[in-house]
């Protein structure tokens, strides 16, 4: 265990744990737009920056992204010092200039007192904040269907060659975890469309309800050693089946006991 001080209070952290994880455990609200626990930290949005110092640093302090700064013994952390707040305000100001139409960005900017951007608004700015959560999750799940493409200000998220990605199984994890709900998809008539690729939703053999795509189910069955028939019945019908099976066992037990 490592002892650190966060905003004047002592806290205990596991060796090698990242500062942000300790901060969140203490329920201190530090914003982060590129952070997701399912994937390795990236340090791209810079909103989770905190100011750190140590007694022996003699008044000197530095700013680090807490999402990927491992705890050190006797670290003194300020999550909302004036300078930290100023950095966050400026970053939100920059975000707001680029994504003026994103409700999520507008809300977070407002929390930091930025109601209107000081910079040139990009009229054609979309809502993708290039946090890379979608691509990192896609990589972590083993699909590698989409990627950040290009560099600098012109960077985008896209499938290879901007065509329907062959490796996408339509699991929707990219879209569902996008902090600004930028990634478009549609679920209609047992068909799912995402990244310009159409998927068949796997319908329950009993009631016809759908949960995941056939391609995703086939992938899981094949690669994770799960019988495909598990996926052919929906959760609700599975529960009914379970109750009937257990009912038969119970009736049999009852009979045996009497």
């Amino acid at each position: 265990m490592v002892n650190i001080t966060i905003n004047g209070k002592t806290a205990q952290a596991k060796e090698g744990e990242m500062l942000l994880s300790v901060i969140r455990r203490l329920k201190i609200d530090v914003p982060a737009l590129c952070h997701h626990e399912a994937v390795e930290p990236l340090g791209a949005c810079r909103l989770c920056m905190v100011e750190i110092t140590k007694t022996e640093w003699d008044g000197w302090s530095k700013f680090v992204t807490s999402c990927l700064y491992p705890v050190e013994p006797d670290l003194i952390v300020s999550t909302h010092s004036d300078q930290v707040n100023e950095i966050r305000r400026t970053i939100m100001d920059l975000y707001l200039a680029r994504h003026p139409n994103s409700p999520e960005i507008r809300k977070l900017a407002e929390e930091y007192g930025v109601l209107k951007t000081s910079y040139e608004v990009q009229v054609d700015g979309d809502n993708c904040i290039l946090c890379g959560i979608c691509t990192r999750i896609c990589d972590a799940m083993g699909f590698h269907a989409i990627s950040l493409v290009g560099r600098g200000h012109g960077k985008t998220v896209a499938p290879p060659l901007n065509e329907a990605p062959p490796d996408c199984t339509g699991c929707l994890s990219c879209a569902l975890n996008c902090p600004t709900n930028f990634i478009e998809f549609s679920d209609q008539d047992d068909k799912r469309t995402i990244w310009n690729k159409e998927f068949e939703m796997l319908a329950c053999v009993k009631c016809g309800a759908t949960t995941i795509t056939r391609e995703f189910a086939e992938h899981l069955s094949k690669n994770r050693d799960i019988p495909f028939e598990y996926f052919e019945t929906c959760d609700s019908c599975h529960r009914k089946e379970t109750s009937l099976t257990m009912g038969r066992i119970a009736a049999w037990t009852k009979e045996a006991q009497s």
Binding site: H36, A38, I137, M141, C171, L172, S173, L176, N177, L202, T211, I212, F216, A217, L220, I226, Y230, F231, T233, C234, D235, S236, C237, H238, R239, K240, E241, T242
Partner: peptide, 14 residues
């Protein structure tokens, strides 16, 4: 990540 794989996979619907 809310991909629903577990919901689809559980044979007991749990």
């Amino acid at each position: 990540v809310k991909c629903m794989a577990c919901i689809a996979a559980c044979p007991f619907g749990c």
